[in-house]
Amino acid sequence: MKPFAYARPATVAEASRLLGRGSPAIAGGTDLLGLMKGGIAVPERLVDLSGIEGLRGWSRERGAGLRIGALTPLVDLEEDDRLARSLPIVREALADAATLQLKGMGTIGGNLLQRNRCWYFRDEAFPCWLKGGIRCFAADGESHYHAVVGTDAGCNRVTPSDLAPALVAHDAQVRLASARGTRTVSVADLFTDPALHRREEHTIRPGEILTHVVVPEAGLQRRGTYRKAMDRKAWSFALVSVAAAARVREGRLRDVRIVLGSVAPIPWRALEAEQAVEGTTVDDAQARRASELVLRDAVPLKDNAYKIPLARELVRRALLRLAGA
């Protein structure tokens, strides 16, 4: 790592003043330090958020939804039985995420803001588009783990976060605070729309701090489930993941959300499949039909066509689980 200065502010306001280009925030550090060791991120100053009080833990107030402090370690969320009753998908999504050590160090905010794992992006030697270059090396290179859909901008990265699809499926939002004030955006909108052709993965602005994740009441009314396919039994980013959530009454699914991870540069909504099961009671045949609508627009690369049947199968299983549980 290149030398840098280090600040550990005690308040959001102070932190916000210190943040900026070349001066990013660090929380758990499990992603950022990796990028720095690889020469991908070269900050002049790190702003350590861990000294800020009040951004750890979670609360649920009637009518106000669920509020989780961005600095809450993932393992605290996973192990919390009360939280698992309020929003079971969090425990499910975290069960196969990372390792115990990384979950103890990493935070929910950092999990959402982690950068993609593309092996061309992470290798300093490849001047890929996302790093300011002119092309995507995966497009005609090795593409086992890359996107099959939503790659308009010519970057074939995928979202690695396990929590992102799960939170999108529950219409979660994030609070972003800065010296200029606070704004709330949906977790879905935290990810930069690839169609905008911006060389960034997240919409958080320089100087902003992700302070909370909020799941509104409507989102909490949904039952959710998470499915993840990996190429070994632990400690792997998803080959494909699926979060599905819906209000379930008498077996009927409403407000259905089907969100795929690791198939696109953003958490990817399977809108056609959502519509196909909206208002229905899902049986085997129905789940199969709906799953076949998933990723119909996908254009796989040389090595990643397998993700399409895999995503469909995970969607089918997730829907059956939703309907059956």
Binding site: Y6, G29, L46, D48, S50, Q101, L102, G104, M105
Partner: peptide, 19 residues
């Protein structure tokens, strides 16, 4: 490189000493 930091198993290679 796992050590315990305040009792929690932690990758010391991904933890800044100043922190």
């Amino acid at each position: 490189c796992t050590v315990l930091v305040d009792g929690r198993p932690t990758y010391s290679c991904m933890t800044l000493a100043v922190a």
